[in-house]
Design a protein around this nucleic acid. Structure first.
Length: 564
RNA sequence: CGGGACGUGGCGCAGCUCGGUAGCGCACCUGCUUUGGGAGCAGGGGGUCGAGAGUUCAAAUCUCUCCGUCCCGACCA
């Protein structure tokens, strides 16, 4: 490709509203342009990168027996209603009606559709199966952000496995896990697999593949000692024991005017770890009390996971008043008999604690949880804080911000049961298929690579996904000898399958160097009269920027070496 | 959805307080000179100032409504 006929509108300044580094560089480098919030045009450079990422993903999926298919992105509401996700997906799903008034949705994921197709599998002899597609997904994100990192329309590789039993699923899951490791290695992304929440996917287990990055929006806790790693939505930690004094026989009510917060109560002599924090949630329409230790934070995803909630939100002040007779600041669960009370494990067995009295401006002390509170369920609801101890080795947990680059799920039989996808096993028993699902966001992977591969001059693509392997920078396009040699090298490299961008623009060298660096081509070959006089050209790897003089006759071999 | 910021040629910005019909840098076109790290000079093209309504002789500027974009939070496979 010749630069004079290549469309790559580079910019000297990044758009003012681009914050994330990948967003800035991809726009400046002429890779992408925004159409509207969460929707981006991929220009030729980005499209080339996307193709390479897809190729790598396809390779690794095919290597573990994946079969590529394609499902429609416009999907009837009926199959989503069958699985219950027409409701539970909520606002993330773009919905529309056709001219006949039939409801449909744009695909956010495809478990349902794949399960309906899997209906045609009827014998264990046809298993296992692993199918995947690389196709557009639509998600009406509450807040698209950071360029390609969180968008409403994107390409996703979604794979689905079908097995006759759990051990088959375990195998498929492990294969995907290993394939993901290889994919991210080839993308030069340093991933940390972590235990994750399965959200509304359901199923037993899930692993997220996280890349450390400042612009990441997922928090992960990692143990530096044993390697334990989990999403904050799932992470657990070891707390040091607290020994309470036994306290009085009965709770004592005391007046606390103006005291509405844990901190304020702590100031007058009731340390926060001896308080019970009481929150009121609406969980699928049911007013529910949720208790954690005063110095702990609740993690709402944990609450949602533990309760299997479809709709979960904090109760309004009015709802709280109606149900408990007090406003937030004086709430407690003592004596509450008619509402579910969910408590975090860290409160188990505690005595002599302090909590709100459900009467504005009053608190209770001497609360013995077992004696005084009617706990319906003990759950893990607490959000782990940085610095707490690892449950498996006692090491210190680090809190790291990461980008979620992949997520794999053990789904079990939930979807197969709904859609009647059953097979006969070797004993002639009809059993639902056991499914797994496995996703990677293609454009997010592209942006994540930029987040982790750049310097002050621009992007530094790994060879595996670079839009071009080599850029030939002709310093003096009007010098016939320079152009002749450039064309010759261009022809030879291209002939061996190396992708070359020939910068034949009549621009000053500084401009051409800056552009080549900005778009991140791994190797630059610089051809100018100075070198030609000595029979050499310059070869500069983007990564270290160190220029080597190479004899013209050796360039092809030298460059081939660098990009293979 | 709550909070904040912003919207003026492709990009970055000034002008708005105090109304008089739009300007700067980069990019683009032409010519000349230049040519190893974002050239210089000269000439030129391109903007319903986010949209609508209002006030006014006159609105980028004042008023109202709406729309859009970004950031923080909420939320989120």
């Amino acid at each position: 490709m010749r630069w004079t006929s290549f469309f790559s509108p580079t910019l000297r300044d990044a758009p003012a509203d681009a914050e994330a580094i990948s967003h800035q560089l991809l726009v400046r480098g002429g890779f992408i342009r925004q159409l509207h919030s969460g929707h981006y045009t991929l220009l030729p450079l980005a499209f080339r990168v996307r193709k390479k990422i897809i190729q790598i993903v396809e390779d690794e999926m095919d290597a573990i027996g994946g079969q590529e298919v394609q499902m429609p992105t416009l999907q009837p509401s009926s199959i989503w209603k069958e699985s219950g996700r027409w409701e539970s997906m909520g606002e993330i799903m773009f919905r529309l009606e056709d001219r006949h008034g039939s409801e449909a949705a744009l695909g956010v994921t495809a478990e349902e559709i794949f399960a309906t197709v899997a209906n045609e599998i009827s014998s264990y002899k046809q298993l296992p199966q692993m199918w995947y597609q690389i196709h557009t997904k639509y998600r009406d994100e509450a807040r698209p952000k950071s360029g390609l990192l969180r968008v409403r329309e994107f390409t996703m590789k979604d794979a689905y496995s079908f097995d006759v039993d759990e051990s088959g699923l375990d195998e498929a899951f492990e294969k995907q896990h290993q394939a993901y490791i290889k994919i991210f290695e080839r993308l030069d992304l340093d991933v940390v697999p972590v235990e994750a929440s399965s959200g509304n996917m359901g199923g037993s287990d899930s692993i997220e593949f996280m890349v450390r990055a400042e612009s990441g929006e997922d928090d992960v806790l990692i143990c530096g000692k044993c390697g334990y790693a989990a999403n904050i939505e799932k992470a657990v930690s070891e707390l040091s024991d607290i020994v309470d004094e036994s306290g009085p026989e009965v709770v004592e009510k005391f007046s606390t005017p103006e005291i509405r917060t844990i901190a304020a109560l702590a100031e007058i002599g009731y340390p926060s770890e001896t308080q019970i924090k009481t929150m009121v949630y609406m969980i699928d329409g049911q007013v529910t009390l949720v208790l954690v230790r005063g110095d702990h934070m609740i993690n709402e995803q944990k609450l949602a996971d533990a309760t299997q909630a479809v709709n979960l939100r904090p109760a309004s002040k009015n709802e709280t008043m109606e149900n408990l007779g007090a406003f937030p600041g004086s709430l407690g669960a003592v004596g509450v008999a008619d509402l579910p009370v969910l408590a975090d494990h860290a409160l188990n067995g505690r005595t002599n604690m302090t909590t709100g009295a459900n009467e504005d401006d009053y608190h209770l002390s001497g609360v013995n949880i077992e004696r005084d509170i009617n706990v319906s369920e003990w759950l893990d609801l607490r959000e782990v804080q940085a610095g707490e101890a690892c449950v498996s080795c006692g090491g210190e947990l680090d809190l790291v911000s990461t980008i979620e680059s992949g997520h794999i799920f053990k789904l079990g039989s939930k979807y197969a049961e709904v859609f009647g996808a059953k097979v006969l096993d070797e004993n002639g028993v009809n059993k639902p298929l056991v499914m797994g699902s496995y996703g990677i966001g293609i454009e997010r992977a592209m942006a994540t690579i930029v987040e982790t591969h750049h310097d002050d001059k621009g992007i530094v693509w790994p060879v595996s996904v670079a839009p071009f392997h080599v850029v030939i920078t002709v310093v003096q396009v009007k010098d016939d000898e320079s152009m002749r040699i450039a064309e010759e090298i261009y022809g030879s490299l291209t002939g061996t399958g190396i992708e070359v961008l020939l910068d034949d623009r009549d621009a000053r060298p500084g401009v051409k160097f800056a552009d080549a660096e900005l778009i991140g081509v791994p190797v630059r070959v610089t051809i100018g009269p100075k070198g030609i006089a000595d029979g050499v050209v310059e070869v500069t790897p983007r990564k270290d920027g160190e220029t080597n003089l190479v004899a013209i006759d050796d360039v092809v071999a030298h460059v081939t070496d660098l990009v293979r």
